[in-house]
């Protein structure tokens, strides 16, 4: 077998060079967002406990919550929440046997991506201006 030329043959797809389909990306993102949003939950629960703990505790927690860092954590968790919300609704349809075709998976993936961004912006507008 040593005399068979192998140098110019195309290699099979490998994770490092393989472009993931959009439905795979949203599936991975669903898991990631589900875990990441707990950062925002922790911040809010700390803030709630601090409110009953005392003035100094609340002042510290409230300062962190409303700082640029707190906004980053809460806004990131908010987007994660909406992404996970929409991807979770898609799972109801998956479980019922719908939207399982490749074409449907791609369309719903883009709907989840853009939908989560739109819902995050709308929620933030509601928070700051309503």
């Amino acid at each position: 077998m040593g005399d068979i030329p192998r140098g110019n043959r195309p290699l099979s797809p490998h994770l490092q060079v393989y472009r993931l389909p959009i439905s795979a990306v949203t599936s991975i993102m669903n898991r990631a967002t589900g875990h990441a949003m707990v950062a925002g939950i922790l911040l809010l629960v700390w803030w709630l406990v601090a409110a009953v703990a005392g003035d100094r505790a609340f002042a510290t927690a409230d300062w962190v919550l409303r700082s640029w860092f707190g906004f980053l954590v809460l806004a990131g968790s908010l987007w994660s929440l909406w992404f996970h919300f929409l991807a979770g609704i898609r799972h109801f349809f998956y479980d019922a046997g719908h939207m399982l075709e490749i074409d449907a998976g791609q369309k719903t993936s883009w709907a989840i991506i853009w939908g989560s961004v739109i819902m995050t912006v709308l929620t933030l507008i509601l928070f700051f201006f309503a």
Partner: peptide
């Protein structure tokens, strides 16, 4: 729990949005 959270998530966001920014 997913179905419950579909209802609870918007309700919670509206509640917490009014709470953040209030004094103690």
């Amino acid at each position: 729990t997913s179905v419950a959270l579909v209802v609870l998530t918007p309700a919670f966001l509206l509640v917490i949005g009014r709470a953040i920014g209030l004094p103690r």
